[in-house]
Structure formats: structure tokens, C-alpha cells
């Protein structure tokens, strides 16, 4: 195992303020390798802030985040190389072609044999025939598939996905679910925020609900994920 690698993600009493506004309040949870965790909650509940902190783009105002036994500071640059993020915005350059986008990020991640990596990713995304076309000409679904491959390019240990099912049709959603299961089987920790609970129903191992920055585990029980979420919110 590389020194920056890890098999768990732990939020320990994490609080984050933006000025006087409190985005996260004493959030504590642990996810293990091979687990898909859903973070549910209304808009503005703190889901994107939580993902940004997990991605090392934000530091907590209080509390700590551990990747295995190390903090983001301890893990440094190498730790970032084990994290993949698919944001609500897709992190793609519309002026560049699909292949150029992937090649740029492959180079930034210091990957060897960039052309082979890009070709394999484009094949997985079923975009090989569009490799030379600018991303600005792609449909939302094509962009989303490309963005997912960009996030998975370096086989991250921790995969953070912010609303990944937005704008996808049934086929594309199915492909995304399959890719998430592949990541889970390969030992990744997958943390996903979504309002599309039906799409992740069959994938999720653990779910918790963020309400005004506070995290509570979603109670197990009968009914679908949405029914349990609704009864949790009502109570």
C-alpha cells in the first residue's frame, strides 16, 4: 500500500463556518473501503461543504478529517492523488475535445502512458468516436459520462460525487450505477450526495441526513430510501 493510501474516511466532530453562517455542525461519521455512502439533505443543508472538506478543498473550522490515520496536511500532495471528485459542475473545458480534457488531467495526475489511459477511459464512457470533438458540442449525458471518467482516471481510493445523476436519462443512470459498483468492488470509498434517491436505492450501504449542518444516520427499517428519508425529515 502506498504511504498516502488509506482504507477509511473519518469525520470527527467537524464544524465549518462561513463568516457567521454555520454550514456544518459537529459532523461525525466513518466510511470504510468498499462502501457506498449517501449524504442526503435539502438544498443548503451542507452537503457540498462536506464534500469540499473531504476533497481537501476546504479546511474545517473545528474538528478533524482523517484519511486512514492521516490528516490532509499529513498526506499532502500524494493524498490528493487518491481522491476523485465529480462536482455538480463537471470540471471540463468546453473548448477542448474529450480526449484533450482527459489527457490534460491525466498529465496533471502524473500518469504514465497518457494516450492509452485516455483511450481506455473514452471507451468506457462510450465516447471513443467523439474523442476529437469539443466538449461544448456534447449533450449533458455525454458530458456527465466524460466527467465521471475524468474523476476515475487515476483509480481514486475516495470518490466524491455531488449530484451525479442530474440530467441523465435511464440508460446513462444505469451506466453510472454500474461504474459506482465497479469502484466499490475495487475497494473505493464512494460518497455521493443526491436528491435522486431512487437511482441510488440499490447501491447504498449507509446513508445519513444533513439537516442545517447536523448529520444523523438514516434509520434502517421498512420502505424505500425515499420513504425512510421523508419519515426522517418529518420526525
Amino acid at each position: 500500500m502506498a504511504s498516502a493510501d488509506f482504507t477509511s474516511l473519518t469525520f470527527r466532530d467537524v464544524t465549518r463556518h462561513f463568516g457567521r453562517r454555520r454550514a456544518l455542525h459537529h459532523v461525525t461519521f466513518t466510511c470504510e473501503a468498499g462502501e457506498i455512502v449517501a449524504v442526503l439533505g435539502a438544498n443548503g443543508a451542507g452537503k457540498s461543504t462536506l464534500l469540499s472538506i473531504a476533497a481537501t478543498l476546504l479546511t474545517p473550522s473545528a474538528g478533524s478529517v482523517l484519511y486512514g490515520a492521516q490528516s490532509a496536511r499529513d498526506g499532502g500532495i500524494a493524498l490528493r492523488g487518491r481522491i476523485g471528485v465529480l462536482g455538480h459542475d463537471l470540471y471540463l473545458y468546453p473548448e477542448l475535445t474529450a480526449a484533450e480534457n482527459l489527457a490534460f488531467f491525466a498529465r496533471l495526475y502524473g500518469m504514465a502512458n497518457v494516450e492509452a489511459v485516455v483511450s481506455a477511459s473514452l471507451t468506457r464512457a462510450a465516447l471513443l468516436e467523439c474523442a476529437g470533438e469539443p466538449v461544448s458540442s456534447f449533450s449533458r449525458g455525454m458530458r456527465q459520462r466524460l466527467a465521471l471518467e475524468r474523476a476515475l482516471l487515476h483509480s481514486p481510493r475516495l470518490l466524491l460525487l455531488d449530484e451525479p445523476f442530474t440530467g441523465l436519462d435511464d440508460t446513462a443512470s444505469g451506466v453510472l450505477r454500474e461504474r459506482l459498483l465497479e469502484s466499490k468492488r475495487s475497494g473505493a470509498i464512494v460518497v455521493v450526495t443526491t436528491h435522486d434517491l431512487e437511482s441510488i436505492e440499490a447501491l447504498v450501504d449507509t446513508a445519513f441526513v444533513l439537516t442545517a449542518g447536523r448529520a444523523e444516520p438514516l434509520r434502517a427499517g421498512p420502505g424505500s430510501l425515499r420513504q425512510r428519508y421523508r419519515s426522517h425529515v418529518v420526525s
Binding site: G87, Y91, G110
Partner: peptide, 18 residues
């Protein structure tokens, strides 16, 4: 502005580079 529109600046900041 280009880097902001699709949050590509964040994507670069996530990369394992100085």
C-alpha cells in the same frame, strides 16, 4: 472566468501537484 464557469480551477486544485 473560463476556470470558474465549469469549476475547472477546483479540479486543478485537487490534482496531486504543488
Amino acid at each position: 472566468d473560463r476556470e470558474r464557469q465549469n469549476e475547472t480551477l477546483r479540479a486543478m486544485l485537487l490534482a496531486p501537484v504543488p
